[in-house]
């Protein structure tokens, strides 16, 4: 089974490489395939490492990599080789990968800029939501007053009022951070107080029987108790905040991945736009893998 899957993936890889290296291109102005070959080698290496380190017989990696090769074959054939697609709207893969080689510094800078924004918003949103949520969940009076507000705020996507925030906040950066912050804060806050409300009475009684200080009660009992709820929602939280981020960057940023793509499209530079989208895809994938790791770790006790 494993060998068969391996074989299929490599047959397609072989076809892809043959097309790339042997068939003459009908489209003019196709750049050399060096950068693309490097990308292919990278993908193949990551794939082989994933297969080697994967103890479970997970076929996902084979399917994904086979899909990538097929996609590349179709892309290469329809653009560079037979020049079927529009030369501007459907850029050649060679040219797209060339962007990585030529513009890697610029791309990296934009990724760093986006991630800085994302993480500051995410971090501020999560920590303040958990911190305030713990107090609001524990102190009945605070809860009675904050819960109705949270119920109203949580379902309204921050995107809805982000144009307003952009005009109110002093800088674009602070506005987009606030958009991400709000997108993360309310749902997490609500999860936190709801979870505390449904803590098993016996756990609470047991904890109280130790005559704990408020500080230990919150840090050692309530915090670990609510964390799985927050973490299991963190995939959605991450997706939300990425959505917020990309949206925010469309509204007048001067840096960032969303801006890079938007800007490239404005100047009809679709080669750059596609390269930008691929980078966003890679970043999102890495973030997701990372969140999955955290989840496995944090929910270990359930």
């Amino acid at each position: 089974m494993k060998i068969k899957n391996m074989l299929i993936a490599h047959v397609f890889l072989f076809i892809l490489l043959s097309i790339l290296l042997l068939i003459p291109k009908q489209r003019p102005m196709v750049k050399d395939s060096g950068a693309m070959l490097v990308a292919i080698v990278l993908i193949e290496t990551i794939f082989l490492i994933a297969v080697a380190s994967n103890k479970t017989a997970d076929k996902g990696a084979y399917d994904i990599v086979t899909f990538i090769w097929i996609f590349f074959i179709i892309w290469e054939l329809t653009t560079s080789v037979y020049n079927i697609g529009h030369p501007v709207l459907a850029p050649s893969p060679e040219n797209v990968f060339k962007v990585f080689q030529v513009q890697w510094q610029k791309l990296l800078l934009n990724v760093v800029y986006s991630l800085r924004l994302l993480f500051s918003g995410l971090f501020l949103g999560l920590t303040s939501a958990i911190f305030l949520g713990l107090f609001a969940g524990w102190i009945t009076r605070l809860k009675n007053f904050t819960q109705p507000i949270a119920n109203v705020m949580a379902p309204i996507p921050a995107v809805v009022f982000s144009p307003y925030l952009v005009s109110v906040m002093p800088s674009f950066r602070s506005a987009s951070m606030l958009v991400i912050f709000l997108g993360v804060f309310w749902p997490t806050f609500l999860t936190t107080i709801n979870r505390i409300a449904f803590i098993e009475p016996q756990i609470l009684d047991t904890a109280r029987s130790f005559n704990l200080s408020h500080s230990i009660m919150i840090r050692k009992i309530l915090l670990p108790y609510i964390l799985p709820g927050v973490v299991s929602g963190s995939k959605i939280t991450l997706t939300t905040s990425l959505l917020m981020l990309n949206f925010a960057e469309l509204m007048g940023a001067t840096h960032g991945m969303g801006y890079y793509v938007q800007n490239s499209i404005t100047y009809a530079n679709y080669t750059h736009a596609v390269a930008g989208i691929i980078v966003i895809g890679i970043v999102v994938t890495v973030l997701n893998i990372w969140v999955t790791k955290i989840q496995k770790h944090a929910i270990g006790w359930r």
């Binding site: 016996q202 756990i203 047991t206 029987s209 130790f210």
Partner: peptide, 27 residues
């Protein structure tokens, strides 16, 4: 009020589920 001079054992959920057995005792 409660005090550590009285130890309690309930039927269910009496251990903190996020701590391993040893940590529960140590706590």
């Amino acid at each position: 009020g409660p005090g550590t001079d009285r130890g309690i054992v309930f039927q269910n959920y009496t251990l903190f589920p996020w701590m391993v057995a040893r940590k529960n005792v140590e706590f």
